[in-house]
Design a binder for these strands. Structure first.
Lengths: 232, 232
DNA sequence: CGGCGTGTTGATCGGTTTCAAGGAAGGTGG
DNA sequence: CCACCTTCCTTGAAACCGATCAACACGCCG
């Protein structure tokens, strides 16, 4: 259940009911574009399952993924200036969608929702800044490890919502929601460098892989160490 | 006058009056630490003049500036989870400060203020993501040019609040609020690389400098071109 | 004058990109 | 079921950009 993680976690049951009445469920397949980024979106959504990527592109074709949205995340910025951001399904997706006008009217009637939105946006901002550190100051080796850790953390909280990745004993195994290309676009690297780093972790016994997309984290502490300070 | 740019731009005169009654003016000198980042701040502020830097640091000493706050910006995140961010005066500063409890009570009574805060935070998030593109995908040459452009834009809007940097004819001259070290920390580069790029722009006739801190932008369009796609 | 902080310049090194080729997985049609 | 194709990923060699190391210049202040 993802309600407690989503914006609606701040609401009472009957308020959630009102939201549900104006919501509609939607399924999308990987690669689908939710918001093309060139016009004002007229709807919002909560991610129920799957992963969404936020992409900045430049005329010459360079792309940078500037955010990933996991289940529980809110898509769209009610009342904000439009931002040129392409929002795309990284995996198959389940969404809980709201049309612009009805949702905004619910927000008007429920201040807690707006506050929840503000808190969530502060968290997003913090995550973005954390990632700016990764982009600006970490080596390729540290970057790729950092990304795997984020994915592992997400996978762990999805399976076991209470305690995240805390308990050390459990085996961590999950499917990467990103292709090598997407990993590179998130990390500010090339796919070749990503590939080489993955190989290096494998030979160090930190991870193992199945079919390139399924990751076993064999040495979580070791991976953390690498993500923080490279091979030293 | 910076009121229209700040959060209080959304308020009526007497509401601004109420804010003013709970505010106190503060001056700080460059280098002063506003929030050390290790404990919950118990106050907020609006930047009246000067530039504030937001810094992420790691145990091994690596630092990344993850945001700059210019006049009109709001400091602090009412109701957010604490984030480990060091907030520091890049230049001498004038602030309009609010204690936590009184400000939050004004926010409770004035929803427009909260909405304004949300909109502002969406804008911050957008700026952070824009900068993630710079950090992840731009070359050193493009990075430094991008930074100079941001500074120029800010300087222009400060002098002439109405129209930003639009008019092409006017001479743009301003003092850099950042040292070479800080520029490097914002760009994910070393000071040497920043220095070399500046030299290169000078020899290309894009900029001129006085005493290393005062910049004349001689060819704004050229600088924009370089910031977007390097020397091609 | 000498010392210190800040910025510049030069030489060299190394990590990452680039370029190029090969391999594995999955889908399609015969 | 297999040949073929396409896409994604891996691997290798070479080139290059930015980092590192080191020395020097400049302004400032005691």
């Amino acid at each position: 259940m993802i309600r407690p993680k989503a914006v609606c976690g701040a609401l009472s049951d009957d308020e959630v009911g009102r939201l549900q009445r104006i919501s509609h469920h939607r399924r999308l397949t990987a690669g689908a574009v939710l918001f093309p980024g060139d016009r004002e979106p007229d709807w919002f959504a909560i991610v129920m399952s799957g992963v969404v990527k936020l992409v900045k592109t430049q005329a010459d074709g360079r792309q940078q993924i500037v955010g990933l949205q996991f289940p529980g995340a809110f898509l769209g910025q009610p009342g904000a200036n439009p931002s040129s951001l392409i929002v795309e399904a990284a995996t198959d997706l389940e969404l809980c969608c709201f049309s612009k006008a009805p949702f905004e009217s619910v927000v008007r009637d429920h201040r807690e929702l707006e506050q929840s939105l503000l808190r969530r946006t502060f968290d997003e901002l913090d995550a973005a800044r954390q990632w700016m550190f990764v982009l600006g100051r970490k080596t390729a080796e540290e970057k790729v490890a950092s990304l795997i850790l984020i994915m592992a953390e997400n996978a762990a909280t999805l399976e076991c919502p209470t305690d995240g990745i805390a308990q050390p004993a459990r085996m961590i195994k999950f499917e990467l929601p990103l292709s090598r290309t997407e990993m590179a676009e998130y990390l500010g690297l090339t796919i070749e460098t990503v590939s080489r780093q993955m190989k290096s972790y494998k030979s160090q016994g930190l991870i193992a892989t199945e079919r390139t997309r399924v990751i076993h984290v064999l040495d979580l502490a070791g991976l953390r160490r690498v993500a923080e300070m490279g091979k030293d």
